[in-house]
Design a protein around this nucleic acid. Structure first.
Length: 522
RNA sequence: GCCCCCUUCGUCUAGUGGCCCAGGACGUCGCCUUCUCAUGGCGAAAACAGGGGUUCGACUCCCCUAGGGGGUACCA
């Protein structure tokens, strides 16, 4: 594809009606990369013509997510369409259209004339090629809402005016607008404005084939709620009661102050009528349900690195034309081009994202990993961070090569934070009970020998365990390590055995061994 | 209903008429390393939606069918 004629100006124009969606993040990335590639400008603006659903809080969260991703924009003032409307800009354009005879009043709204008035519309999309729409398929559409909509311009009018006023050269946006673009092209023509270059991006889908959307969280909740109710023939009242109890136990009181209102929300979710995000998060926590990651904030909480999220998502619909899969923003800023954006929708594959993330973690040194993990724990697991205290570095080192995400250590390492409540039967049989309780005998020996270890650090613990292997005439470290694992974690899996002991501390290690011997001795 | 767009391994994709009995990555499976898990190394299975054309020759071009997505809103 030929290079564009400068200046290149792209923009990302979300409507502030919720969190930044993963698809929006990719659109923003492409627009950013294109502007950077050609030394242009990447602008931000908020499309809040839907006054009822828009909020400043949402706008702030979107900005925060963009910053977290590392996408910088070039305009200090981020325009809101509501403000531009208040300044009269859209009315001015609408009046011009009215005066020209290209628009007419319809009740208290205003419509733009399409069809025979303008004829067929053809435009070139940088991704999809030439799109031709016959006049017969084009209907007059509203450009200014009526009284109920606050006489606001519709999205169709506002985008065209804004993209023109801010001299946007390339409109990169989701494929859902492809069919609407004929309207925008016609509007540009009627106003005598140069049409921007449009580039539509394919959608990101769920593995099931549906479009990835925030509704998926509600669906997940519904399914889990139904399942919960099916057990022991509970009904919706039981469910609400359970959720409320859970919420009262786990959340600050202010959030559940209005118990009646909360109950309604829960009921709606469970019956599939509608839902609110607060209700969903409460339900998920009550059911111990892992909500699907849909928005950027979800991936952040799940412990994905921003660079990897961006890398993965960039590749979901674009590629450099060779086998290169791992690249960063700098690479995109040098190589991104619109003609390599794919046309077909793609399915989001969390396993591949996780693999990208793990690769990036493994590329870090232990020294680099520790502060990154610490920062994640500060934000999402401050209690665990506090509990670990000086052992955090040990913990970080132990989980570095075992983690696909920054959140994995929190779940993989639960044994560090709480003693096992039960011993995995299979693990007990294999490692403790087998050969006439051989494992338990080993534990007895270790309980004594480990009591003498000082200082309680990895090398000393290791030396002690190696000595134990020799004393016991056991051929393998495994004969010592596995019984210990079961006693200390209740399972047969943990980090290196010396690190496992070091993490727990001497007292806790001895206590857990003693308790295990006591419970399984009989 | 009408209109538009899309269709290569399970998934993301390379492929722009012969270099392709189709290459890479994730996932899956097997083997090796190993105190478990993980890491690391080696290897395997796995795709051109179907049917017609065009051509000496089609994954690549055209048509039809099927499937998927989107639009048809005073939502964006």
């Amino acid at each position: 594809m030929l290079d564009p004629t400068p200046p290149v100006v792209t923009r990302f124009a979300p409507s502030p009606t919720g969190e930044l969606h993963i698809g929006g993040a990719r659109t923003a990335l492409y627009a950013w990369a294109y502007a950077r590639r050609y030394g242009g400008q990447f602008l931000l603006r908020f499309e809040d013509t839907d006054l009822a659903r828009s909020s400043e809080a949402s706008a702030d969260r979107i900005l925060e997510d963009l910053r977290w991703l590392g996408l910088d924009w070039d305009n200090d003032d981020i325009p809101r369409q509501s403000q531009r409307h208040a300044a009269g800009r859209y009315d001015e354009v609408i009046q011009q259209l009215l005066d020209q005879g290209d628009a007419y009043e319809d009740g208290d709204a205003v419509r733009f004339k399409m069809g025979d008035h303008r004829g067929d519309v053809t435009f070139d999309d940088a991704v999809y090629g030439t799109i031709h729409t016959p006049a017969a398929d084009l209907e007059d559409f509203i450009i200014r809402k009526g009284d109920a909509g606050g006489k606001m311009p519709t999205f169709h009018l506002a985008v065209v005016v804004d993209d023109h006023d801010f001299e946007v050269s390339h409109v990169i946006r989701g494929q859902e607008h492809l069919s609407n673009t004929a309207k925008h092209a016609a509007l540009c023509d009627a106003l005598g404005w140069t049409r921007p270059t449009w580039a539509h991006t394919p959608s990101i889908m769920n593995p099931g084939g549906s479009k990835m959307s925030k509704r998926d969280k509600g669906k997940a909740c519904q399914a889990a709620a139904k399942q919960w109710m099916q057990k022991e023939t509970r009904d919706i009242r039981d469910f609400c009661a359970m959720c409320v109890c859970s919420a009262i136990n786990s959340l600050e009181e202010s959030r559940v102050a209005d118990e009646a209102c909360f109950t309604d929300e829960v009921g709606e979710v469970a019956t599939g009528q509608s839902y609110s995000m607060i209700g969903i998060e409460l339900i998920a926590s009550a059911l111990d349900l892992q909500l699907p990651e849909i928005e950027v904030a979800d991936f952040r909480r799940s412990g994905y690195l921003p660079a990897q999220l961006l890398n993965y998502v960039a590749l979901l619909g674009w590629n450099p034309g060779n086998d290169l899969e791992h690249f960063d923003l700098k690479y995109l800023a040098e190589h991104f081009a619109l003609d390599r954006i794919n046309k077909a929708n793609s399915t989001f594959d969390r396993a591949k994202l996780a693999s990208f993330n793990q690769d990036a973690i493994l590329q870090m040194s232990l020294d680099d990993f520790e502060p990154v993990l610490r920062s994640h724990f500060e934000q999402f697991h401050s209690d665990k961070l506090e509990q670990l205290g000086d052992n955090f570095r040990l913990f970080s080192d132990a989980y570095w090569e075992r983690s696909k995400t920054l959140d994995d250590p929190a779940t993989l390492g639960t044994f560090v934070f709480a003693a096992p409540t039960e011993y995995n039967a299979k693990a007990v049989k294999k490692n403790l009970a087998k050969n006439e309780n051989q494992g338990l005998q080993v534990l007895k020996h270790l309980h004594a020998s480990l009591a003498d270890v000082s200082p309680w650090d990895v090398p000393t613990i290791r030396a002690s365990l190696e000595q134990a292997v020799a004393d016991l005439e056991g051929p393998h470290m495994g004969h010592v390590a596995q019984p210990l694992r079961v006693a200390l974690t209740g399972t047969a899996v943990s980090p290196e055995i010396d690190a496992t002991l070091a993490l727990l501390g001497q007292n806790e290690t001895l206590t857990r061994i003693a308790r295990c011997l006591e419970e399984l001795a009989a």
